[in-house]
């Protein structure tokens, strides 16, 4: 159960090898988190996350493998994840995503379809399946890792951005749909995070590390704001980016 400060004891993380997700779970493990179910494609990577969490105080971990490029696996993954813990689930962390490579995605139907599935279709399908279970249990928080890329697509990563834009919008609607049920949804919009996902890219202004992003997001988890920007200044930056004329926007570097 969550405590008075919003600290969860039980979590299911979809995308259990994500560096931001791991950093979030590590911080929560230093407080009250003891039970974690990790869902993802890479069993070895998930085990590594589980090992790390156990060093921080998590006492029970479970691993569920599922492939986010296959929408049919979403429903069964949720079922297995909930079955893996006999506790009410305090936190659902949706951290599945892939950045892709825009130069390769540009002209590929197959790659674009996969990008959309992994970044939008599968996470949305999982959240739909999670929603009813959370409402039935009468409490819990759903944290969706979106991105500032969801605010306005740009040519350097518009396929990724469009997927996140869809998921972000889905999560905002989801948040409204569960009001008053004891369940709440928060959407984290970190900026550029230097991680494996972005190792090949040049950092841009206001970039941050997974741990710093996690710190902001975890601080936000104990509050009620629907959208968590990390760092906070990006809320202002992207309010401006939203209205930059298209001619200028196209000139945005990577």
């Amino acid at each position: 159960m969550r405590d008075a400060f919003g600290q969860p004891q039980t979590a299911i993380c979809f995308g259990g090898t994500s560096e931001i997700a791991t950093a979030i779970l590590m911080r929560l493990a230093n407080e009250r988190l003891t039970d974690v179910v990790l869902v993802g494609r890479d069993a070895v990577g998930l085990e590594a996350t589980a090992d790390l969490l156990r060093t921080a105080g998590v006492t029970r971990t479970a691993i569920i493998t599922a492939d986010a490029s296959d929408p049919a696996s979403a429903g069964p993954a949720v079922k297995q994840a909930f079955a893996a813990t006999n506790q009410p689930v305090d936190l659902i962390l949706m951290a599945v995503g892939m950045l892709g490579d825009q130069t390769l995605d540009d002209d590929s139907a197959e790659r674009t379809a996969t990008m959309m599935t992994v970044n939008l279709t599968w996470p949305a399908a999982v959240l739909a399946q999670v929603r009813g279970r959370m409402v039935t249990q009468g409490m819990g928080k759903i944290l969706v890792l979106s991105s500032v890329a969801a605010i306005r697509t740009r040519k350097a990563n518009y396929t990724y951005g469009a997927g996140k834009m869809g998921l972000d919008g889905f999560a905002l609607g989801l948040a409204d749909s569960v009001r008053g049920t004891g369940v709440s949804v928060q959407i984290a919009r970190p900026g550029f995070v230097t991680s494996r996902m972005t190792a090949h890219l040049k950092p841009i202004p206001f970039s941050t590390t997974p741990d710093v992003a996690a710190e902001k997001i975890v601080a936000g988890l104990s509050g009620e704001a629907t959208v968590l920007w990390s760092p906070g200044i990006l809320r202002v930056v992207f309010a401006i980016f939203r209205i930059v004329p298209p001619m200028l926007w196209r000139k945005m570097p990577a």
Binding site: R2, D3, A4, V135, M139, G180, G182
Partner: peptide, 15 residues
């Protein structure tokens, strides 16, 4: 109903 204690932290919903 959504119920919490007197401190009004961590409300949850039940029948």
């Amino acid at each position: 109903e959504r119920l919490a204690g007197w401190g009004r932290t961590a409300p949850t919903s039940a029948m």
